[in-house]
Design a protein around this nucleic acid. Structure first.
Lengths: 136, 136, 136, 136
DNA sequence: GTGGTCTAGACCACC
DNA sequence: GTGGTCTAGACCACG
């Protein structure tokens, strides 16, 4: 799964995909020459319209992040940008966590509860990954 | 200035205001009973339409964050118990955390790193709260 | 025709629509998964502005009655458990009942008369539900 | 207490008062020549602005329901309309009860629960009346 | 085609 | 002065 979209965030879905592909490229999860899922596959995985998936790829191509070769698929360009330093990557996550903390406060979830909830979700995430690893 | 909007982010302006007021309420920057700027004033400050400002306040009232009194203005509610059941509240947060986890994975931030990042942000949040408590 | 608005009642048009959709959902006239008329169609039928129709649907979505899917339309949710705690739910109804009691008092309707009137209306409501169940 | 206003119903407060005075007159709770509370007293009782109370009385006077005598107060006119028949009065209450029933359904409050809630609120109402009777 | 957002400007109810 | 509602018309994101 290359991306994960939130339909209620107000951020256009295609932009969420663009940002996440950029993030994956910046962090080194995706490397130059790597193949991206086809438009139809991506649309199916994210349960979005093919037009939306195509638009995300079009945007990425326009920005020079990816390259689409007719009949072959989409590939990440081997551009010279070095992976972001960890501090930069952490800052992005920190903003997201801050929003979660604010929300937790309004929902009257205490700090320890939030921390154990994170631990619980991390565990669930690991199990899902293993399940997928076994079936693929 | 209660909020600061970014017209290019793609996030609806009224939602940006909602999020910022919620953050201010959670961190103690705004306190129960505090008056918010009038719809007209807010609209002027942010250079947005009056309806957009009103919509943000309507959303905040629907979520139980503020109270609006006809002809008097909008006031922050003393945050009582959330009317949602605890299981429901946790579920909502879990969804948000799942998104953060996926994002962290893309950015190649390990689980322990994410957990300590949360602890760090919680600590920062608490300090902001105390700072607000001291100045008021 | 899903709703019927009265422009002279003083009740906001968007609220009239909300109330009528809720009533239709509760009585079984509308069922989970049913599509509602599009914002544009509803606006045309009721001869109101598109924004007003959209506002009614937005309110219904915020209350968890309907689900709106971008580009697809609005659909009645299969009504699951209300996310509010039971005590909270009872309190809201209690307020409404108090208003009815005061009104009954002004109209010089005695307590037993009011109670049997409630029983009568509950019976009528049940019959409407059954009628809807039979025809669908 | 001559009336009971609901600030969230969408119906203008002054109209709610007008309707309730009319209802009281129609049901015989108020009779020709009866004195109504002064504007200031009414405003205080209902916790509304004096202007709003004055507007309600102005409307009632314009419709010929009441008569205001300078320095003496407001009095119900002895107009020939006979009190409404009980069936008519019940119909109005029936509409209100129907709305409560729909709401109860969405909040997943069962019919017996609603009935016992009414009984409970009636009891609370009686006790409030007795308390007022003792202090006045 | 669908719903979502924003602007501009009007009128009302209320303090 | 306050917030609330409605209209009209524009543009965007999405299916």
């Amino acid at each position: 799964m290359i991306a994960h979209v939130n339909f209620k965030s107000g951020v256009p879905v295609y932009l969420q995909i663009v940002q996440q592909v950029k993030a994956a490229a910046a962090s080194g999860t995706l490397r130059g020459g790597d193949a991206l899922p086809s438009v139809r596959v991506l649309a199916e995985e994210l349960r979005i319209n093919r037009n939306t998936a195509a638009r995300a790829y079009a945007e990425l191509e326009a920005e020079g992040i990816i390259e689409t070769r007719q009949g072959a698929g989409c590939f990440l360009k081997a551009n010279g940008t070095s992976p972001l330093r960890k501090t930069v990557r952490s800052e992005r996550l920190a903003e997201e966590l801050d929003a979660v903390i604010v929300h937790a406060h309004h929902l009257q979830i205490s700090d320890p509860e939030l921390q154990s909830l994170l631990t619980e979700r991390l565990e669930a995430f690991r199990q899902r990954q293993q399940a997928n690893g076994a079936t693929h």
